[in-house]
Design a protein around this nucleic acid. Structure first.
Lengths: 186, 186, 186, 186
DNA sequence: AATGAATGAGCCTTCATTCAT
DNA sequence: GATGAATGAAGGCTCATTCAT
């Protein structure tokens, strides 16, 4: 009774290894060792290595997508929406770093897994919606370009953010929001 | 005398294949076929697959770094420097897309190849310098954060920019510069 | 008390799967699924996969061998014995097709399971006895060759006989007997 | 110059191993060792283990099929055709035993490789043609049944024929032909 | 008796790299 | 310089078997 499945451990280990080496270079052996089982045993839970990628990526992608959907529908000034979007995005990024980083590195904007492109596109459309609200009548900035600039700015954090760094995640989210809202001029 | 080495072809083919499949998943065989030779023959030009990665990445990294060094030293208003930086970055990105994309995907901000981290860091410092000039006395935005936001916004283009898209590279560079200089408010 | 062991089901399922895929390619999993249990559970009944092969094969081999022993000892004309042998052989073949087919494909005439070669040899000797009776003084046909020709002709049915075909098993047995008894000439 | 491909050796080794252990139980390692190379090296010549099966089986199947086509078209008494068919069949069987045996054990009459069923069927049709000629007006024996009896009788030889046995292949072929032509009565 | 998780060995296949020609 | 064959080390995946519950 209460024999807990080890799928959770396996997925967490996968996230860690995928993040460290990339999906292609990651070996099932690495993951197995991380969990403390034989690599063959992992196949009790999955059918292929790719399953692990999707298992890793499912949670953060659904969480960020669901939360963003709600945010866009709320009655809030566009500025506030953008700020909250930044916090949301960053929060997922740092709270489940390995999971989110794997999504960003292996899936987002790549075209390797058609099933996942839909989620990708929906998220971008939501960000574009906020951009449109924010830009109002301005025609000098293209909402899709602005949306991609913001998402790129935030996603890039997986390459440099460290939880023991000078600034915490919320401060960074605020500063990025500040820059996009008000520009950089002194 | 004028027998041109085929190293150029090999590096170009490598760039293409690395970009399409990622370095780890790319096979020497793919590259060889692209050039029209046998994979064994490639070893007349290199010692290991990794050599190809560095060969691919050398040119764009040096070009962007060299040009940015010069830019920073010039007597120009900070706004202008930032705008030119955007154009420069984007120009390299789209003119040698596969090469630059490989750098961004495989090296930038990762820590797999210590030899290349120095270049990475130098570039970031140059961008931070521009940010500092631009921010002047402002203390609410951290120059390194701002620099990383900009670089992330631009680098992300490798995931979505298409040369046959609605906007050309210079327009995009201008808009990103506009956003970072003036903010997004309508 | 009347709790029937499931060994019967397991053996029947094994026969089916062995016949479909061959012993080597058959997986315990296939068999378990066929019975509706987990593959681990099968080991309450057996010690190894090979046990299943022998369990499958025991019944038809004993039945055909026992019946043939009796037949040979009977006071009957040799022609009648041969005809009855054909019917017997075919009857077992079609009534327990998967079991018999497994014997024929995996054991008969192969030398992988020494324990079973004795039965094989005994059966062949019985058929040879009938052949000898039948051939009488003829020296142009070798009884062992004739015996093997007949057995081969009948065993081959596992590769082509279908219960929904044009002829039923007894018709086929009769025709084969006719051919061996009287030749094919028009 | 004249660096002979080792594909021939590999196919021969495959035939040997497939015959000894069956296709499913045969390991690439066995084959590689037989040839004296690493198992990975075999993939220089093939794409999958199945390719080896087909390579093994191609020659004998084409040889027997081609020769039988010609035989059927010849102006010969039906009796002579049947006798020559036996000799042909047996000759292929014993001259390339491992190759032919693999065909018989792994392919003939099984339905695992749809591409090969056509050859199988064509051969059976040719044998049936001979049977029809031979049976003339007789309606008590079905040509397809007779054809399958003969083919089964001959194919079964892979299970018992040994080149160092009491009788040589041609003697056996003759005796089988005698039986089918004239029956077994003394 | 049955479950379901895990073992551990091994198999097919891939691929960077080497090397004789 | 190029070829094409071969190497040798893994890597993903399978599966008979074991075992605690």
């Amino acid at each position: 009774m209460a024999r807990p499945s080890r799928m959770g451990d396996i997925v967490a280990a996968s996230a860690k290894v995928f993040r460290e080496k990339g999906f292609d270079a990651a070996r099932l052996d690495d993951i197995a060792q991380e969990v403390g089982m034989y690599k063959g045993s992992i196949y009790h839970y999955i059918d292929s290595k790719e399953d692990l990628l999707f298992a890793v990526v499912r949670e953060p992608s659904e969480r960020i997508l669901g939360a963003t959907r709600k945010l866009v529908e709320q009655e809030l000034p566009a500025e506030e929406k953008l700020r909250r979007l930044c916090h949301l995005h960053v929060e997922v990024l740092v709270n489940v770093t390995p999971f989110a980083a794997v999504y960003i590195e292996e899936i987002a904007g790549k075209h390797r897994f058609p099933d996942w492109e839909a989620k990708d596109r929906e998220y971008m459309r939501l960000v574009e919606d906020i951009m449109r609200e924010l830009l109002g009548d301005r025609r000098d900035v293209d909402p899709p370009v602005a949306a991609r600039a913001l998402v790129g700015a935030l996603n890039w954090m997986t390459r440099w953010y460290r939880s023991d760094g000078r600034m915490d995640a919320d401060q960074i989210a605020d500063q990025v929001a500040d820059v996009f809202l008000g520009g950089l001029r002194g």
